[in-house]
Amino acid sequence: MKYPPRALIGAALLAAGRHVTVKELSGILNLGDAGTRAEVEALGRSIQEHGLGFEVEEVAGGYRLVVPPGLAGALAPLLAPPALPTLSAAALEVLAVIAYRQPVTRAEIEAMRGGSAGTVVTLQERELVKVAGTSDAVGHPLLYGTTERFLLDFGLGSLADLPPLQGEDFAHLLRG
Rank of each mutant, 00 (worst) to 15 (best):
68 P>Q: 13
129 V>H: 02
61 G>E: 01
113 R>M: 13
161 D>G: 10
6 R>N: 12
56 V>A: 08
132 A>P: 00
120 V>N: 01
97 V>D: 03
38 A>L: 11
135 S>K: 13
144 Y>K: 12
113 R>K: 09
161 D>H: 14
42 A>H: 03
13 L>F: 04
94 V>T: 07
24 E>Q: 14
163 P>R: 03
7 A>W: 09
58 E>C: 12
140 H>E: 06
170 F>G: 05
16 A>H: 13
101 R>E: 15
172 H>M: 06
96 A>F: 00
49 E>R: 09
72 A>S: 08
168 E>Y: 02
134 T>K: 14
124 Q>E: 15
82 P>A: 15
62 G>R: 02
72 A>R: 14
29 L>V: 07
47 I>A: 00
106 R>Y: 05
56 V>S: 08
22 V>C: 09
136 D>S: 11
152 L>Y: 03
69 P>C: 03
7 A>C: 11
84 L>P: 07
167 G>A: 13
107 A>D: 04
8 L>G: 01
35 G>D: 14
148 E>W: 06
45 R>L: 11
154 F>V: 01
38 A>N: 11
32 G>E: 02
19 H>S: 11
147 T>K: 06
123 L>H: 06
99 A>Y: 00
35 G>Y: 13
122 T>C: 07
102 Q>Y: 03
167 G>E: 15
62 G>V: 07
104 V>N: 05
141 P>W: 09
